[in-house]
Design a binder for these strands. Structure first.
Lengths: 164, 164
DNA sequence: CTTAACATTATCATACATGATAATACGATA
DNA sequence: TATCGTATTATCATGTATGATAATGTTAAG
């Protein structure tokens, strides 16, 4: 219905800006190379514009015109593979190369390292893989110092709403 | 020169979205009630659109179209905080909420997204934060297609004079 | 009351955005 | 090589956005 998916009809926007600038229809028409009756038509409900017409009007109003496609949010991100997780966490295992098998054989060790040194996104990735319970448990382990523990408990409590 | 004062030609946006959706010209043409040659014309540099045409295409691409007047930017903007940058870039990260930490942890990823989908002001904001070298490097990455690369290289070379 | 400024309505001609169509080009595959 | 799917180029007819113009309405001021 409206030209602008965000709501305010373009004609109203033109009128507001024009009045804000203290211009009459005739003055704006002169500045934008159109006519007062045409502008009136636009301000009164016209909704089938050419972009260049709007641009000329915008310029005359000392404004810009923004026209863009707004992608709808696509499908939720695909399932994360084990290999991808290893890749994400690899930087944290500078002393020993992380293997895919480590994720299943030494989950506590992996998680401890992630919590101690990982960034938020790495922890999130791990959480998605191991589950939140595993993270909560790992946070309680003694290798994790208090400061880190408090930090992650605060962060994870805060971000209990995963992006869907 | 461009339809969209903020940067990415509408034709490029159409092409990106179409390819992102995995549609051929013919498929999109059918969905949007136009023809493949017409779409090709649009994707190839056409810049005099009617709003309703763009809207039909957007709908066929499961996207929206945003058209609005943008009041001229007042006094030059003050120093930009990290939070502000995140806010500016947030719309580009529709599939996953952008965090402040992402800026430091995954700069390449962030910049890639910004270059692929961002508007000029978003790229500028990113450039101010990451530095022009980072942008130049990001432009060279392979996720950025040739056309986009050429575009930004042209634009950024053009605007090497920062606003003072 | 008259006048001027501004807004509003209606009509019409012109430029041109658009889609249909045909022809051709290109890349991948058998 | 031939074939197919897709993209690209070119031409043309149609619908319509647009601005010019005339006429009319509204409001404020003198």
């Amino acid at each position: 219905m409206y030209d602008n998916v965000k709501g305010v009809p373009l004609g109203l926007q033109i009128r507001w800006l024009r009045q804000d600038r203290g211009l009459t229809l005739e003055q704006l028409a002169t500045r934008s190379g159109t006519s007062a009756p045409t502008l009136h038509r636009y301000e009164s409900g016209w909704d089938r514009f050419e972009i260049r017409t709007l641009e000329r009007i915008a310029t005359a109003l000392d404004a810009g015109l923004e026209v863009r496609f707004v992608p709808a949010s696509p499908e939720s991100d695909p399932e994360q593979t084990t290999e991808e997780l290893v890749e994400i966490l690899a930087p944290l295992f500078w002393d020993r190369e992380l293997q895919v098998s480590d994720l299943s054989e030494y989950p506590s060790w992996v998680l401890g390292r992630v919590l101690m040194y990982g960034q938020r996104e790495q922890v999130r990735a791990a959480s998605r893989f191991f589950g939140e319970d595993a993270i909560a448990t790992a946070v309680e382990r003694r290798e994790v110092d208090d400061r880190t523990r408090n930090y992650w408990q605060a962060v994870l409590a805060d971000s209990c709403t995963p992006r869907s």
